[in-house]
Write a protein that binds this DNA or RNA. Structure first.
Lengths: 209, 209
DNA sequence: GCAGTAATTAATCAAGTGTATAATTTCGAT
DNA sequence: ATCGAAATTATACACTTGATTAATTACTGC
């Protein structure tokens, strides 16, 4: 019986491949479908390698969660561009309600992970860190945007606005990604922008640029 | 070796007990922790009974999901009271951001279930039905509330407002239930009410009653 | 009281899981 | 070319899972 041929890969690409295979498995089969065998199969590798690179399956999942969240925030942040604050805030809003952030696959993976947060302290920490990073981003943008308009708000009020905007974006993101509703992409962006404009008390037309 | 003593129960109460045990298991241990053995242990019963009353473990989980969603919507609906439309909408908002709807355990169970929706068609249907029921409720309340204030909106605009309010409530619900932030209950209700008032374009003071 | 029926238990099974380890192969250094 | 170290595979193990079935028990109607 001849063994299967294989070729070596540097540690970084093997890790990346395994994480990608993990996220694929979770997206298609759910967390319970992301078994060691399924993941290694998708990565074109045998189960033993997972142990080599991640020790545990648990650590692989955690690593995958970290990468997933980092990519998600990076996508959102990339949508901001580098214009004036108000435009950056609008860019963030748009990014949150359009692919690749607002997307069925993304939501599926997010949902699978979220389901573990309450009963797994490590996953909880990963979640908390990512969540805080995102809300800090919003908070910063809101503060700068209001300052740009000459309306300096107290830290308290900025924080409250950020909380509400964050909640709205989260909710819209879920609704859109779930795909139950049948609004076109343009509608979605307009609704999101108008709502955020209303919430921070500026003119919708101004905000739409 | 003497067998353990047991007593018979009517079908309805056994089913209810098993479902309750399932939800408890999921809340504390996650979906993967809700094994047939764990559930039957919590229900004070042996694993065989699950098969008798639900055929599959899968059907038990689906039944539990249905009950969970129905209870959740019932809680929200109960918060509406039976006053005028605007007061009912305010009641709904308050209910969504306070226990037992906004609550760590509730969120944990919801999250666990949500993680299965994308890869399980049956769970997806249960979710869709519950989601639609909730948004219909909001849509109805918004329509009546606006009519009460003499501002009759087109179906389209009511629908859009309902989508946005629904998203905001979802997002706030998640934020609050997750418990990461440290706002007091009064703040939460006020923030939610003010935000919804702003979104539907009425005076916040009026809305707070 | 007693018999019969239905609920419940107990025990077992096959399949799938994560993990461990030894055997093999690849590939760079020499 | 070849040797040696490191990456990868193959195999096996112990355990947990959901499912199945036969034996037992509790309750109902008479």
């Amino acid at each position: 019986m001849t063994r299967r041929v294989f070729h070596r890969e540097p540690e970084s690409v093997r890790q990346k491949d395994l994480i990608a295979a993990t996220l694929d498995s979770i997206a298609e089969l759910g967390l319970s479908g992301a078994t060691v065998r399924e993941v290694s199969l998708r990565a074109g590798v045998t189960p033993g390698l997972i142990r080599r690179y991640f020790d545990n399956k648990e650590r692989l999942v955690i690593a995958a969660y970290k990468v997933f969240i980092a990519d998600l925030i990076a996508s959102a942040e990339a949508g901001c561009g580098d214009g004036p604050p108000l435009a950056r805030l609008a860019g963030l809003v748009r990014a949150c309600v359009t692919p690749p952030v607002a997307d069925g696959r993304t939501l599926a993976i997010w949902a699978a992970f979220i389901g573990t947060v309450h009963s797994d302290p490590v996953m909880a920490k990963v979640h908390r860190d990512g969540y805080q990073a995102f809300r800090d981003l919003i908070e910063r943008l809101v503060a700068e945007a209001m300052a740009e308009r000459g309306e300096a708000l107290s830290k308290q009020r900025v924080r409250q606005k950020a909380i509400v905007i964050n909640a709205l974006l989260d909710g819209l993101w879920i609704e859109i990604s779930m795909g139950g509703d049948d609004f076109s992409r343009l509608d979605v962006v307009r609704i999101a922008l108008d709502s955020v404009a209303t919430l921070i008390g500026i003119d919708a037309r101004t905000f739409r640029e």
